[in-house]
């Protein structure tokens, strides 16, 4: 079996399946959904797709600076560790729902976790 996480999770097909489920969980989550009020849903879904591709170890051009710049306005509105934790939880539950094995979920979570400080502007 390939050691490539993105291929093991299922590549672009998996991302497409995950994006609706993940975004729906995020929007329904009262801990974090205030950050999504008033945003264009299609653009947001495209961003979620970028994030999931990144977390699944797929091809992306995201940098720490992008993460900082992209979230600075949310940090100014109070985005903190508890919100990041909530997103991580939704990510994990999305992958569980898609029957992704725990070991792969752990690896995706570790990738997502690696941008915590950039997202929170630290």
């Amino acid at each position: 079996m390939s050691d490539n996480l993105y291929e093991q999770i299922g590549g672009e097909t998996a991302v497409n399946a995950a994006v609706d489920i993940f975004y729906r969980k995020v929007l329904a989550d009262d801990r974090i959904n205030q950050f999504f009020d008033g945003v264009d849903m299609e653009q947001q879904a495209a961003k979620q797709k970028g994030f999931l591709t990144f977390a699944f170890g797929g091809p992306n051009n995201y940098t720490g600076k992008d993460m900082r710049d992209g979230h600075a306005h949310l940090v100014a509105r109070g985005l903190n560790d508890s919100h990041f934790d909530a997103v991580m939880e939704n990510l994990g539950n999305t992958l569980k729902e898609l029957n992704v094995p725990d070991e792969l979920i752990g690896r995706a979570a570790a990738i997502a976790e690696s941008v915590r400080d950039d997202v929170l502007g630290r």
Binding site: G50, T53, N61
Partner: peptide, 8 residues
């Protein structure tokens, strides 16, 4: 923006 076919 992303040059990866993601952001549209």
């Amino acid at each position: 923006s992303c040059k990866s076919g993601l952001c549209h």
